[in-house]
Design a protein around this nucleic acid. Structure first.
Lengths: 155, 155
DNA sequence: TTTTTGGTTCTGCAATAAGAGAACTAAATA
DNA sequence: TATTTAGTTCTCTTATTGCAGAACCAAAAA
């Protein structure tokens, strides 16, 4: 049966994934996000999370609320049960990934501004910069195409 | 002529780019990286950088060495001149961008590990997770193809 | 040989982050 | 009405970051 206890493999995976998620999350949130992917039981209560990860109540509360606000997790309730059951929000993850890919959109716009104010005298550099910007713009155009290609390939 | 003084537009761009670069860099390094793109003069000495950005010697030294070690900048020397002239390393930037794109490679591998240890009983979740992993793998396969397409389009 | 230049390294501080633990609270239960 | 539950919020510590300023150093110049 789906155990609430974590075995060694699962503990190791939580550490590993946790480190990956720490890019953009504080440690406690990162581990919770990892836990909710790794655990046999997918819907865990506040106290289960707290105990499995050895967190204080405050750390658990803040981390869960952060993840909820980022929509990386959500919770369900059960009739006649006051507890909330937290679970990973996989479908939103894909959205997140897409926006993350397009996040560097601002970069090329700002870089264009940089290019536009440069003196003509640094011609070689300006050309190199322009090529780099063009490359970023190319990627920005093509990545949404890839997304569509993926959606089509699923059908 | 190419001035070493920065005008208001340039100062604003350094702030703006600096914020963007702070993703992965400390503030001082981020501003230096920005400065070396924005400044009319592209090759700046230690002291010019220090004065233009109002940094201490130690902050300047550490930040420059960090950027050098990341190969985001490089320096040249001039005969009969003991100073080093620091400049942005644009060509390496493109390489950096490529590796950054492929950096999340580890993610899908670890996610596969997660999937493989999941109980069969959480079938729906496992399927969603698998689709997500497949999506990441798809992106990982296709992005190098995009790079090639770009290289070809330039010729 | 002494001084200057172009930095590097060390010490210390101020600000921020991360979380523990205790006090608190609102709704549900007894 | 009193108590328990399921959290939230507040206060305090500790660790880390980012940088300033001063001391230091090696090579070149005077």
């Amino acid at each position: 049966m789906d155990s609430i206890k974590l075995n060694d493999k699962q503990l190791a995976l939580i550490e590993k994934l946790g480190l990956i998620f720490e890019n953009g999350l504080q440690p406690a949130s990162a581990r919770i996000a990892a836990l909710l992917l790794v655990s046999d039981k997918l819907e865990l209560t506040f106290d289960e999370i707290r105990e499995l990860l050895n967190l204080s109540k405050s750390a658990t509360s803040n981390a869960l609320n952060l993840l909820l606000s980022m929509e990386r997790i959500e919770y369900i309730t059960k009739p006649g049960d006051r507890k909330r059951y937290f679970k990973s929000n996989l479908s939103d993850w894909k959205e997140n990934m897409k926006t993350k890919f397009l996040e560097f959109d601002k970069v090329h716009k700002t870089m264009r501004e940089v290019l536009e104010q440069r003196p003509h005298s640094t011609k070689d550099f300006n050309q190199g910069l322009e090529e780099f910007i063009n490359f970023m713009e190319f990627m920005n155009r093509e990545i949404p195409v890839l997304f569509k290609k993926w959606e089509l390939s699923k059908k």
